[in-house]
Amino acid sequence: MALLIAVASGCLALYFVLDVVGSITEFLEDVAASAGVSNAVLSVLVRSLGVAIMAKLASDICKDSGMATASTGAELAGSAAILYIALPIMRTVFQMIKGLI
């Protein structure tokens, strides 16, 4: 029961935050446009942030229910997802380092 309440309150908090996140994302897009950062690059960072938040939530829910192993699994899955999202940028950076060195 406690677990269900924890999950429900977490999801409710996220739901209410969605509108705020929308405004913040618009502001970030404006800043990125002024600073010359491309939207593709910014979207990688924003998506990574989203995945990090979800992974954190999942990990903490698992810890609250006493499943430490599952919590670690959730964090690993989050890390892998972020790396997958950032893969094109990583490839570009790797090529850049090769070129510079």
Binding site: V44, L45, S48, I82, A86, I89, M90, T92
Partner: peptide, 9 residues
Amino acid sequence: VINLVGVAI
């Protein structure tokens, strides 16, 4: 991982 992404960006 996030810091790695930040460095790349």
